[in-house]
Design a protein around this nucleic acid. Structure first.
Lengths: 154, 154
DNA sequence: TAATTAAGGACTAGTTTAGTGCTATTTAAT
DNA sequence: ATTAAATAGCACTAAACTAGTCCTTAATTA
């Protein structure tokens, strides 16, 4: 389903939570409570995010995590890349070395329209967008997939 | 890596091949040769595409497959949906019933900016775009995720 | 020095995907 | 009619990947 992994899902949830109040430290425990994600998992995600410099960590008692930048400067694309590596829908998009079909793969490079489109899309959505009450989206959304997105709670 | 499955990958490769000459029947064997994908796999993919009405099948000797529409009418989004189901990056995007965190998931619905962005992007790329000689893209493609979104080809 | 909190790595169970094979059905040609 | 060429549909297996957990180390504060 063109899925992101659950870990990435959690990362976005966690960071969205942190985006609601910036410049204050969140302990992993606290974030686990707030999001309903199990603590070990929250820790794992935060470690990855810290390594990717999307959050800043402070060790020791009274330590915790905070966003490394303001919410409108953090794109969803950067979060996804941090957890899953470069955004490319196929191996071809990353490196041609692995491309078994390279001989017959006359399509090489032509994945670009797709990859570019998706990257552009994801780079344009920021954490700030995610925490906005959400209401503004036109109807077209439902079209391709389904009809569920109607109820915009919260 | 925000991946599509290999099967979807193959589907796009196969259909791109078929797009280069329309209104002629391609047997599965023929497509396997042309694309370098193993025959059983090609068959599997074509069956799925046929069920989704993206290709038309003709049974019997001299049978084969052909595109159901002209290449510029077939979007990459429709191919992906055929193989992987509705395009949504998370479960939340499909149905809220499965959402374990529903209580704490105050983000619900806010996946929409992301899902919308991606769907729109994929709906705008067609098979016709995929078979265009492609030359217009600069080297930056490999970059991880950033800075590339400037050039809006197509 | 004790308590709190993050960092890093290793491991396991579970799920998903890919690929293959088998049988049935349809059509064309001889 | 019969045979050959194709697709349709289903079921199965092995391999890869993901998620989640746990343990040990390091840093900071009180």
């Amino acid at each position: 389903m063109l899925r992101i992994s659950k870990l990435t899902d959690y990362a976005i949830i966690i960071m969205s939570h942190m985006a609601r109040r910036v410049a204050c430290l969140y302990a992993a425990t606290q974030l686990a409570d707030a999001t309903g994600v199990a603590l070990p998992t929250v820790s794992k995600v935060l470690k990855i995010l810290a390594r990717a410099k999307l959050v800043k960590s402070t060790r020791g008692a009274k330590g915790g995590y905070e966003l490394a930048q303001l919410p409108d400067k953090i794109s969803v694309a950067s979060i996804i890349s941090a957890l899953e590596g470069p955004i490319a829908l196929t191996e071809c998009g990353i490196s041609h070395d692995h491309c078994q079909q390279s001989a017959s793969c006359t399509l090489r490079g032509n994945w670009n329209p797709i990859n570019t489109a998706v990257k552009t899309a994801l780079a344009s959505v920021t954490l700030a967008d995610m925490i906005r009450p959400a209401a503004k989206l036109p109807a077209e959304v439902e079209r391709p997939a389904q009809s569920i997105y109607l109820h915009q709670q919260r």
